Amino acid sequence: MSAPIAARFTRDEYLRLPESPPGVRYELLDGELVTMNDPLPVHQLAVQQLLLALASWCRSPRGHGLVLLPIDTEVGETSILGPDLQWYDGARELPSRAERPWPVGDLVVEVASPSTARYDAEVKLSRYLAAGAREVWLVRTDPPGARLVRGGGASSEDVGSDGTLRSPLLPGFELPLADVLR
């Protein structure tokens, strides 16, 4: 669950904040600091399975690029979010690995828990696409499923619990959703 904190922050003030305490993560949305509790194990296990599959694909002969766990990601002048996973195309020029915030990934993945699904779908999705994400995956743990949204209004696809995650950005990548949510 997320909750805004009353004070307003600029981008630079947010970036100067100390590390969050254990069990709490921050995001900046339209100048408001939003706190989120650490996710439940079901969420983290789904993120872990997605990370392992994407990282393996990146190292394979057909893949390339970089996949990262949550990092500060600029999605507007007053908004910095931390997607669960992001994949960056290997041909893309990226900032130093010691900098923050980073630009939005080519593929952004949010694993939604029942308490965050609305925030992910109604707020974050449009921010990622407007910031240049070429595709966003909204993976649900309950009920199981996923929505794959391609940038530029190209298309949207719903994947059921027995379906497979695929993307034109990731040639040859296939991951049964059941493997993510087992």
Score class of each variant (00 low, 15 high):
S96E: 12
V111H: 03
L54M: 14
V75R: 00
L45R: 15
P95M: 01
S20I: 02
I71T: 13
L177E: 11
V123S: 08
P114A: 14
V136E: 07
T10D: 07
V180S: 09
S56T: 15
M1K: 05
R25K: 15
R118D: 14
E74I: 04
Q49C: 04
Q86S: 15
L28Y: 12
M1C: 06
L17S: 03
W137F: 09
S115C: 05
V111Q: 06
P39T: 11
M36K: 08
E32T: 06
G65I: 12
R97L: 01
L33G: 05
A46W: 07
C58N: 12
V149Y: 06
D38T: 15
Q48Y: 11
T141P: 00
G152Q: 01
Y26N: 12
S56F: 04
P41K: 02
L85M: 10
D72I: 00
E157R: 11
R59W: 14
E19V: 08
E27P: 01
W102L: 13
P101I: 09
L52V: 15
G163V: 14
P168M: 10
F9P: 02
A146M: 01
G105C: 02
R62C: 00
S156A: 14
R8V: 03
G105E: 07
L81C: 07
E135G: 01
I71E: 12
A3E: 15
L165M: 12
L170Y: 04
N37V: 09
A53V: 09
S79K: 08
S156R: 13
S79F: 08
E174I: 02
V149Q: 07
A130F: 09
A131Y: 05
V109D: 13
G23P: 06
L175W: 04
L138S: 06
E32L: 09
L68I: 13
T10V: 09
R118N: 10
R118K: 10
I5F: 01
R147I: 11
K124P: 09
L94A: 06
I80E: 09
L45Q: 14
F173G: 02
D179S: 14
G31M: 03
A46M: 05
P95Q: 06
G31D: 06
K124E: 09
L165R: 08
V111Y: 04
M1R: 07
L177P: 08
G132W: 10
R11C: 01
L28T: 11
I80L: 11
A117Q: 11
H43L: 06
P39R: 02
L28H: 13
